[in-house]
């Protein structure tokens, strides 16, 4: 499997670490237990296109948001996490 890192180009998947579903968004601090429970534990079991977090630990150390088809393993897009570019971004 090859992942096209926006900084390093297509690289072997052994350089990357998989985290999982990129859809859940961390709630604001005061959001309470239930919102955090959803964020920490609840995941869709997707057969098809899914956005995922991948970490290029064996390369540029960027976190990447990839859209991958979980059935065919095809990567449809790979983009850098908002803070991967090196500058603070407006939230």
């Amino acid at each position: 499997m090859r992942i096209n890192c926006p900084f390093c180009g297509p690289r072997e998947n052994g350089e990357f670490t998989y985290l999982g579903d990129a859809k859940p968004v961390r709630p604001e601090g005061g959001a309470g237990e239930e919102a955090f429970y959803d964020y920490v534990y609840l995941r869709d079991n997707v057969a098809g296109e899914m956005s995922e977090w991948w970490y290029h630990g064996g390369g540029c150390r960027s976190w990447l948001k990839a859209v991958r088809n979980t059935v065919t393993h095809e990567f449809l897009s790979v983009e850098a996490a908002p803070g991967a570019g090196g500058k603070a971004v407006q939230k």
């Binding site: 996490a81 803070g83 939230k91």
Partner: peptide, 22 residues
């Protein structure tokens, strides 16, 4: 050591990109 680095990078790049920190 390696996992904490990965975790902190996740916090910096994904969770808190508005912070100016490297």
């Amino acid at each position: 050591a390696g996992l904490v680095m990965q975790h902190l990078e996740f916090c910096r790049q994904v969770l808190f990109p508005e912070l100016d920190v490297q």
